[in-house]
Nucleic acid binder design. Structure first.
Lengths: 139, 139
DNA sequence: TTAGGCACTTACCAAAAGGTGCATACTTGT
DNA sequence: ACAAGTATGCACCTTTTGGTAAGTGCCTAA
């Protein structure tokens, strides 16, 4: 890692820290991902595209991304509500910076998968009360 | 974002998702950051370098990173305990993938800083007791 | 008329993440 | 003898995060 991670910044330990705080949130990277793929996307589409996300969560994350200047919300003040979301230039640059992480995850998928299988095994084994969750529906 | 974010992977929505789950944790990116800077680092050094981290947290994150094969723990079985941590090749490749995020954070520091100041202002504004009771006995 | 889609909002809760502080076993410095 | 440092473990508690379910106002299709 080079010195692009300049320490002692205003509120962050380094640029990496700052970035990670911006994209912190279960669905934000995914939202960025979807928006980076196609152009402006309507709320409902996004909602259906990202399975397992609730309205509350999606709206919340979109609001933050919007407030943070990463996505732009367009509200066509129409009769049945119509709103769409798109990346701002800032959002697009961030999406670009995420590409290497996508790549890393994809290239090292085997290891990562193994690692997570391991984690689950370890967690399950150390539970004294050992309660068997029937179907912990994707998280 | 290109198609390095191949959807429909084993347990993840995309490579990005996988990566982010690996580095999830308040101190992990920072640990990676420090280890990427210099070579093997002793526990105590790391501890002092990252101010505001507790033993519990640092140990916990180091354990996970070790279990995940990103860092290597070396225990010289000595009289006063001596242990050091270093990045594995996998850890180093991940650190490399993090560089663009460091860069993005640094380059867009002004915007990011503004954004966070904004967030705090927004949060702080709803704090005064002038509002309705938000149930003080939170769980 | 009733059902349903749209883009949200709200109240309430459970789980996870993180933090504090004390304990360990052993050694060195004072 | 006693404090301090070494790398960690453990119990307990608070904060943050995420999830569920319901409701809002408006409009259209059946």
């Amino acid at each position: 890692m080079s010195d692009t991670c300049t320490p002692t910044l205003p509120g962050f330990t380094c640029g990496l820290d700052a970035t990670l705080r911006v994209i912190a949130g279960k669905w934000k990277p995914l939202i960025l991902y979807f928006l980076a793929q196609g152009g402006p996307t309507r709320y409902g589409e996004l909602r259906r595209a990202m399975r397992d996300v609730s309205d509350k969560m999606l709206i919340q994350q979109l609001k933050e991304l919007t407030a943070d200047g990463l996505v732009q919300r367009t509200d066509y003040k129409e009769v049945p509500p119509r709103v769409d979301y798109a990346l701002t230039p800032l959002g697009e640059s961030l999406a670009q910076a995420l590409v290497p992480l996508c790549t890393w995850g994809t290239e090292n998928l085997a290891e990562v998968t193994r690692v997570f299988a391991q984690r689950e095994r370890t967690n399950g084994a150390s539970q004294p009360g050992a309660k068997a969750e029937p179907s912990p529906s994707a998280q």
